[in-house]
Amino acid sequence: TTEYTFTDDEEARRAIEELKKRGLTFRYEKHGTTWRVRVD
């Protein structure tokens, strides 16, 4: 499991789109302004 942290909404959304394109399994949660994206 790899975890990424983003504080920029645009950056987080781009990363999420990219992961979807690659067909990877991931989860994300947003805490205030911080996004945590975990890739299995």
Score class of each variant (00 low, 15 high):
9 D>G: 08
1 T>F: 15
20 K>R: 13
35 W>M: 04
30 K>F: 05
13 R>N: 07
1 T>E: 09
11 E>H: 08
24 L>Y: 12
15 A>H: 07
2 T>R: 13
32 G>D: 05
5 T>Y: 14
4 Y>G: 00
10 E>P: 03
35 W>Y: 05
33 T>I: 09
28 Y>V: 15
20 K>S: 08
11 E>S: 14
10 E>R: 10
40 D>W: 15
33 T>A: 09
38 R>L: 15
29 E>G: 04
33 T>Q: 11
18 E>H: 09
8 D>P: 02
15 A>S: 04
23 G>C: 05
12 A>L: 14
29 E>H: 08
27 R>N: 09
31 H>V: 14
10 E>M: 10
40 D>C: 15
13 R>L: 13
32 G>M: 03
10 E>S: 09
13 R>K: 11
12 A>G: 04
7 T>N: 10
21 K>N: 08
26 F>A: 04
3 E>K: 03
29 E>L: 07
3 E>T: 13
37 V>Q: 00
34 T>E: 11
17 E>P: 01
32 G>L: 04
40 D>S: 12
4 Y>R: 03
16 I>N: 03
38 R>H: 13
25 T>M: 10
4 Y>H: 04
30 K>D: 01
24 L>W: 07
35 W>T: 06
13 R>M: 14
34 T>V: 14
23 G>P: 00
1 T>S: 11
3 E>Y: 14
3 E>S: 06
14 R>V: 08
14 R>G: 05
1 T>D: 08
15 A>T: 09
16 I>V: 04
40 D>P: 09
2 T>W: 14
37 V>D: 01
18 E>G: 07
29 E>I: 12
15 A>F: 15
14 R>L: 09
11 E>I: 08
36 R>F: 15
14 R>W: 07
2 T>V: 14
32 G>I: 02
11 E>R: 06
2 T>M: 12
22 R>C: 10
17 E>V: 08
8 D>T: 13
36 R>W: 15
38 R>N: 07
37 V>R: 01
4 Y>N: 02
40 D>G: 11
7 T>D: 10
40 D>M: 14
38 R>A: 09
29 E>R: 08
11 E>A: 12
14 R>Y: 07
31 H>Q: 12
2 T>E: 08
33 T>S: 12
37 V>H: 01
1 T>Q: 11
22 R>I: 06
